[in-house]
Design a protein around this nucleic acid. Structure first.
Lengths: 201, 201
DNA sequence: GTCTATAGCCAGATAGAC
DNA sequence: GTCTATCTGGCTATAGAC
């Protein structure tokens, strides 16, 4: 098998295991088993558990971050932006549902692993949206709101149902299919809820 | 020293370590050091790491759950309920800021550890609020909304800023003091935001 | 590049003296 | 109840044959 295939198979297996068990709970043996290769090969390709973890973490950020900056940076009316965001971000997370909890846990363990590049990129995109919101408030087009709170609200309502899935599933007494339905509903519900809150009647 | 004091000292130290490192990342030695006792004593009082962890997890749930059910169960107008919830729940979490991330991570690792009692208690309280919301919608007192989405929204906006603190602090470029200020603002902001969204003008 | 075998370490748990 | 010393198992990592 070619180098690249093996390397990719390892990264895929490592992604599965690290994202569900976390850095500390993950076992190199389990990753090797999932990749159908020998444990020694993991070290041959990635040198150490730490380096393999870093590759997985970096990939996770690179899946979540570009879409986020892309949407809030796009030149379009605020309400459209909000609709696009909730729809495509909830869609994206549905395909990678372990990532948010993984990122949150690992970042709480060790906040330093956040890359500068991501923070700066987001900072720039967010500044544009800040201006957009502030201008609309000044022009009386929407109710007064701090852009920071607005974006936290949108992101929180989009992501939280994924990270709190086990507890929400239990207390709302939903099976897997019902919970998936609820997540689907949120693609439009969250946008409507936010727009209702800030629009002038 | 009395049994109870030692047992409590151990539980406090274990809470610190488990909540910041997680079950897998926690070390019995570190807990012993924090409690200023011998490692063997941990096993004398709690038998195993697993049992000590369960005690910590149970305590964490018992700190978060009663307040939650208490507020949503109280007989009072919906808007007051929302205001009380965001204010006192954000206040409570501020005093135990590691708990939400801890619960979320451990529940994703192993969803079975959720106690039945908590789920049932919450289920009962939530049913009352459900009726309240549905009646207000039918009477045209608030905009149409599914009670489930409403409660997810309120809880998400209250808790998310704590679990995503490292990433939000970085991208919003806030130091610790500024971030605390933002959390303080959310006690009223979240309630206002929600009420604006559902109230009829 | 891929495997087997093993080094070396570290953490949870316990035995046993006091 | 509290300590020291130690057992035991499991895990990362590597040496070395092919």
């Amino acid at each position: 098998m070619s180098n690249q295939d093996t390397e990719q198979k390892i990264l895929n297996a490592a992604t599965d295991v690290f994202q569900s068990k976390g850095m500390d709970g993950a076992r190199m043996q389990e990753i090797a088993d999932k990749a159908n290769i020998n444990k020694a090969m993991l070290h041959y390709y990635y040198r150490s558990k730490q380096k393999l973890f870093e590759a997985v973490f970096k990939t996770a950020i690179s899946i979540m971050a570009p879409k986020l900056t892309e949407i809030i940076e796009k030149e379009e009316p605020l309400f459209d932006k909000i609709k696009h965001f909730t729809n495509s971000y909830i869609n994206l997370i549905s395909k990678h549902s372990y990532i948010p909890t993984f990122i949150i846990h690992e970042l709480n363990r060790n906040p330093e692993i956040l890359q500068d590049t991501f923070v700066k990129q987001f900072g720039n995109s967010f500044n544009k949206m800040k201006t957009q919101v502030n201008e609309m408030v000044e022009n009386g087009e929407i109710r007064p709101i701090e852009p920071e709170h607005l974006i936290i609200n949108v992101v929180a309502m989009s992501i939280f149902p994924f990270v709190a899935k086990p507890i929400l599933k239990a207390v709302l007494q939903k099976d897997e299919a019902d919970y998936q339905l609820l997540l689907e509903e949120r693609k439009t519900h969250v946008a409507d809820f936010v727009i209702n809150s800030i629009k002038i009647n």
